[in-house]
């Protein structure tokens, strides 16, 4: 394999401009840089950041086989009918053994493959847990900055681990299918609580009405008194039936978030969490790069394994050393 090239021939500023102008190739390359944790990606994202926050970000989650991809396709069609531009991110699991992935959602969305106002990207989780890829959040920012009105994020769909989506989406849509004998499926805690809209897809199958009743019954039991009562809708993602109403509700939710101040509140929460996440990541990176490979570090690990020292004491000591070191360096800089 040829050695990784230096960051793309495109200079930072040129890349920023191209993304803002909505150029697909630039956007696609930026997302690749983000996925590869290319340092230049961070620079670009920080320049693009003030242009984010405009899109309506919708997360679509639900068990495998519930027709998420078909629904995303039909949602795109409806949004396009209403003159909106759409970005789509589909996440599929990467193999924990080989690291590879079959990203199989694009193939189900052929209808929009040549629409210039639709951008679609497939992402592998690359070991990340939570239903999304680690890079998804920044990829969403990139697409947002490129000017797409609506961004649909389709999660892996593995079930209860799918909690990351609430952190990045304004509206979470949970899909399900009419009961195939597994009533409990719908009533798992956690995932049910985060959904803003419930969609029973494949409404042509028997049991659709029953499923809607079940979900509503469960919502009735919810005592948290949220001011937004999640609507429960039925769709047939194959024919498109019910999708118009679904988009109406999605728009309604977006409006609700804005008018109730929830959007701002979410934004604040999100910024707080994101800042913390980035700082945590950076700090850990700095700490680990300072420690990695050092003989004393490796020796400490062996001592812990041998029960000669405990990890708590070691951690405290190493961190204290790191901080002291950092102070010293700062002082040196100042003195110079």
């Amino acid at each position: 394999m040829k050695m990784p090239a230096e960051t793309e021939a495109l200079s930072d500023n040129a890349l920023v401009d191209e993304v803002l102008a909505g150029k697909r190739r630039a956007l696609a390359r930026l997302i690749t840089m983000i996925e590869n944790q290319d340092p230049a990606a961070v620079d670009t994202l920080s320049k693009l950041y003030k242009h984010t926050g405009r899109a309506h970000i919708i997360g679509i989650t639900g068990p495998p086989g519930s027709g998420k991809s078909s629904l995303v396709t039909k949602l795109t069609t409806e949004y396009r009918k209403r003159g909106r531009t759409v970005g789509i991110i589909c996440v599929d699991p990467s193999s924990p053994f080989t690291g590879g992935a079959l990203l199989g959602d694009r193939i189900r969305m052929q209808e929009h493959s040549l629409d210039d106002d639709v951008f679609m990207r497939s992402m592998g989780t690359r070991g990340h847990l939570g239903g999304l890829a680690r890079a998804t959040s920044d990829a969403v920012k990139a697409i947002d900055a490129s000017g797409k009105n609506v961004i649909l994020v389709e999660t892996v769909g593995a079930g209860q681990s799918e909690v990351e989506i609430i952190e990045i989406a304004h509206t979470v849509l949970l899909t399900d299918t009419p009961s195939t004998g597994d009533d409990i499926q719908a009533i798992k805690a956690g995932i049910m609580e985060i959904a803003d809209i419930f969609v029973v897809n494949k409404m042509d199958l028997a049991g659709a009405d029953k499923k809607v009743l079940e979900i509503n019954a469960m919502l009735d039991l919810d005592t948290s008194n949220r001011s937004w009562r999640p609507p429960v809708l039925m769709t047939n993602a194959r024919t498109g039936e019910g999708v118009e109403e679904l988009v109406d509700r999605l728009e309604e939710h977006h409006k609700y978030l804005k008018e109730s101040g929830m959007l701002e509140e979410k934004g604040l929460k999100r910024s707080r969490e994101e800042l913390r996440d980035i700082m945590e990541l950076r700090l850990t990176k700095e700490l680990m790069s300072a420690l990695q490979g050092r003989k004393e570090y490796e020796a400490a690990i062996h001592r812990i394994a041998d029960r000669d020292e405990d990890p708590y004491t070691v951690a405290q000591r190493l961190i204290a050393e790191f901080l002291a070191d950092y102070q010293k360096k700062k002082k040196v800089k100042r003195d110079v």
């Binding site: 990467s94 193999s95 080989t98 690291g99 590879g100 992935a101 079959l102 990203l103 199989g104 694009r106 193939i107 052929q110 493959s113 040549l114 497939s122 592998g124």
Partner: peptide
Amino acid sequence: LRDAGMEVIYTGLRQTPEM
């Protein structure tokens, strides 16, 4: 290719050059 660690997108049949 997936088993060799790559991320693979299979586009399916009837692809035009544009697609």
